[in-house]
Design a protein around this nucleic acid. Sequence first.
DNA 1: TTCTGTGCAAATGATTTGCAGCCAG
DNA 2: CTGGCTGCAAATCATTTGCACAGAA
Lengths: 154, 154
Amino acid sequence: MRAFHSKAALRRERELFAQHLSQKGLRLTRQRRLILEAFLGGRGHLSSEELYQRVRRKDPSIGRATVYRTLKLLTSSGLAREVDFGEGLSRYEHLWGHAHHDHLICTSCGRTLEVMDTEIERLQERLAQRHGFSLTGHKMDLYGLCPRCRPKRQ
Amino acid sequence: MRAFHSKAALRRERELFAQHLSQKGLRLTRQRRLILEAFLGGRGHLSSEELYQRVRRKDPSIGRATVYRTLKLLTSSGLAREVDFGEGLSRYEHLWGHAHHDHLICTSCGRTLEVMDTEIERLQERLAQRHGFSLTGHKMDLYGLCPRCRPKRQ
DNA sequence: TTCTGTGCAAATGATTTGCAGCCAG
DNA sequence: CTGGCTGCAAATCATTTGCACAGAA
């Protein structure tokens, strides 16, 4: 998770979203623009409610349903991905350029890191093949204690 | 997922559940026995509703709430584990002897295989360590097309 | 007898949907 | 203009909880 994204990257994301909409005959409304900006400006893994609260600061008249509906659009346009950390609600993460990654989640403070290991990816592929499956995707979440929460050596 | 389990294994599971209950000052009721048997007799990854329907065949007076409550007990006693395949509901799998495994899920027919790869486990550990985490657990689901659903060579 | 367990119905909480008016193209 | 969009409220759906009665220990 980088702290900032270049203006070029932001422009690209907006462009992608606009294309996705027009391609499907959908409209780029004020609300969708607001939600897109709030999503792009937000950090980490936002829930629908958190995004709703962010958008609300810009326009209190916005409805939760619109946020839900727009999150579906962000997901289908490839800008966002729905993730589930077993909290009983969905969170959404950015897919800047569609880079794939997995998660390392601290069970104590809830901090999440996005990680990637090409060696693991290769072995997953091999494991699937051994069972005759052709792999199309995967989900891997590692749970543990982060350096801050881990009991110090002793 | 083996098709059958030995009588000895079944007896051990029942014993474990009874121990867990008495250890917590809880009672082994007729309903809990019925639900335990339905769970042990069921195959694959049962949802609460599916288990409820199974139990209902033995005793139509049973309530959904009791099934939910008993599933929590099965989970805390170590006989079951809650799994989430992103369907918007929880499923529960047997933990015969607590053997750890991951899942290989066919996105076409829904069939799931339980798999394990010690090499991947080792790399997960290494990946966590690289980020200063001490790993306590993980969840890995591989999605793809099973041999039956995969388009034949052509 | 004494609490814990149970079934039922109501409550919850996240998400979806029907609808009447709104507005982007 | 017109068909998609929006906010609202009501509807869903899985799961949880309050309660009065039932039944293990």
